[in-house]
């Protein structure tokens, strides 16, 4: 466990908490893509099946359970509790465009052809693109609430910190997982445009709106 990994996990957790607090305080999920949140719930569900097969550490188990619970509460908030505030019209990204290639790729390119490993690979590939419905929604409406941009910032920061973690692990432990690294790079690239807008607009006190 290195500093990048810990900070990465903390910013991932922080992102999810920011989103939940935003929805809970405003009693609204306006501007949030329910589809992205369903994908994240699917990501955690398919990735953390090893909770049932192996014990790694208390930290590992507790964090996996917290992530799962947060993801499902978020989906519940959007589709059940505050569903009237959900902007269904603008959340129009076609999920099959992500799910079909990701499923196919996880069968083709994995560490071993076993159910758990294929599901883990599926979750890694899916996570790298799961934010696209949310980014698509923002590009469609042309704006995002500031708190939503904080959520996106910490979610992107988490994966960027994991990249640093992998570089660190490669040099110190000779650890290298090609599937995770390649997907992680792809995932981080999707946030670059947003990071630029976040730094040039949101951090200067302006609302994120697209021209």
């Amino acid at each position: 466990m290195n500093i990048f990994r810990i900070l990465g996990d903390v910013s991932h957790l922080l992102a999810m908490i920011i989103l939940l607090v935003k929805i809970w305080r405003s009693k609204s999920c306006a501007g949030i893509s329910g589809k992205s949140q369903i994908l994240f719930a699917l990501v955690f569900t398919t990735r953390y099946l090893d909770l049932f097969t192996i014990f790694i550490s208390v930290y590992n188990t507790v964090m996996k359970v917290i992530f799962l619970v947060c993801a499902y509460i978020t989906v519940y908030m959007i589709y059940m509790k505050f569903h009237k505030t959900f902007d269904r019209e603008h959340d129009s990204f076609r999920l099959e465009f992500l799910l079909v290639p990701v499923t196919g790729l996880s069968f083709l390119e994995n560490h071993s052809f076993t159910p758990l490993e294929i599901l883990w690979t599926f979750s890694i590939y899916l996570e790298s693109v799961a934010i696209l419905p949310q980014l698509f929604m923002i590009s469609k409406t042309g704006e995002a609430e500031t708190i939503t941009t904080h959520y996106l910032f910490f979610l992107g920061l988490y994966r960027a910190l994991y990249l640093a973690n992998w570089i660190w692990r490669y040099h110190t432990e000779n650890f290298y997982d090609q599937i995770a690294v390649v997907s992680g790079v792809v995932q981080t690239i999707f946030y670059c445009d947003f990071f630029y807008l976040y730094v040039t607009k949101v951090l200067k006190g302006k609302k994120l709106s697209l021209p």
């Binding site: 991932h12 550490s57 590992n60 992530f67 071993s112 076993t114 758990l116 883990w120 997982d177």
Partner: peptide
């Protein structure tokens, strides 16, 4: 490490 049947990363 990242074994086939369990992962230490989240």
């Amino acid at each position: 490490g990242q074994g086939v049947d369990g992962k230490d990363e989240l």
